[in-house]
Design a protein around this nucleic acid. Structure first.
Lengths: 198, 198
DNA sequence: CGCATGTGAGACATGACTGTCTCATTCAAG
DNA sequence: CTTGAATGAGACAGTCATGTCTCACATGCG
């Protein structure tokens, strides 16, 4: 019985540590293990008992990011309604985790050599599939590849997260900025999406 | 006289070292000073004689990136013709340096606390001014702030540079991808830019 | 109370990168 | 040829984060 309790408590603590680590590394991606521990309110020793090294911590954060991305993807129902609305829902769902995503995005640039987690491949494929659906339905233009659109979405999410973190843009505009730029671009076109924009 | 020659040779070497450092750090942003030296074909000692430490090297790369951005900005003639065409020219001019820009962009995220080089402020202002001009002329929509559009352009440049580096998109599409997404977005609008697209 | 478990604090060794130094070599100019 | 300058190679200490360890303390349970 004490063994059960042990596991449950560890899991709770682990999640809390993970969340605060994500919050910290979102701002300071080079934060020390000691800083991560302090941010979580625990000692470096305890942090090490839960995550065997920085590597393991980043891996766990990656799993967390993947899980939240997949949850956002599922909640956005990418196969329902117009692809346009699905993109809107998707960005709105991802917004709360954009900081973590930006951290993992830049972290992936450093790994270079190693193969990336297969979870990202699934997510990439889902998002690319959403763009592809919009193309075949005639909503989206076809001269931009789904792979590029997916990559561009990541870039815009990271840019927006950093711009918000540094106070260059207002947090409340986050979703609107990304969705409107991604969907409609910067040019005035007289499309419905822009007629009712402020 | 020998003193003059000394200076000139140093300048040439310095530029060569800077270029190869940029090329290397574009791919591996965490490369060692030793790796940077080898990539430039010189020893670590000589590298240290030209740049007093990694800090100085990154600063010099920053100056290089700023200079090339300003050159691209000037060559793009942002005040001539339509803002749309000016954006096209700008992206086309920046494209060769997108890798370096991406490195410096992610590097700036790490500095966090320190103040950024004023050169970036000038460039930001120039680019934002271009977007603002497009807004006042009626070409661009006004519900997206010039500051966000500038940030988004950086993000798209970095995303595209990374996507190309990892082989996810074709290098030849670089400018087209960025310009078309930024200007027109992903939705089909029947605008002239999309009618003649493949 | 006695005991066990989880924890914090801190010491310790390790590894990686950095910055500095010396010394031998090369190369071009006088 | 001789000299001076730049370079490459390597040694060296310093720094910083990491990973591991020990020990003392506290909390909870029997």
């Amino acid at each position: 019985m004490s063994h059960m309790r042990y596991c449950r408590l560890m899991a709770v603590d682990r999640d809390h540590v993970l969340r605060s680590a994500a919050a910290l590394l979102t701002r300071r991606s080079t934060a020390t293990m000691d800083e991560v521990a302090r941010a979580a309110g625990i000692s470096r020793a305890t942090l090490h008992r839960q995550f065997a090294g920085r590597e393991a911590l980043v891996r766990a954060l990656e799993e967390l990011g993947i899980a939240e991305c997949e949850a956002a993807l599922e909640a956005a129902r990418p196969d329902e309604g117009s692809a346009t609305d699905a993109v809107r829902r998707l960005v709105a769902r991802i917004e709360p985790h954009a900081g973590l995503l930006a951290f993992l995005y830049s972290e992936n640039q450093l790994f270079e050599g190693e193969e990336q987690n297969e979870g990202w491949a699934r997510i990439d494929e889902s998002i690319a599939g959403l763009f592809r659906r919009g193309q075949t339905s005639g909503e989206f233009r076809i001269d931009l590849t789904p792979a590029w659109l997916t990559e561009a979405l990541y870039g815009l999410l990271a840019s927006a997260a950093w711009a918000v973190a540094e106070g260059r843009v207002a947090p409340k505009d986050f979703t609107h900025m990304i969705v409107e730029l991604l969907l409609g671009g910067v040019r005035r076109t007289g499309s419905p999406a822009q007629r009712n924009a402020t």
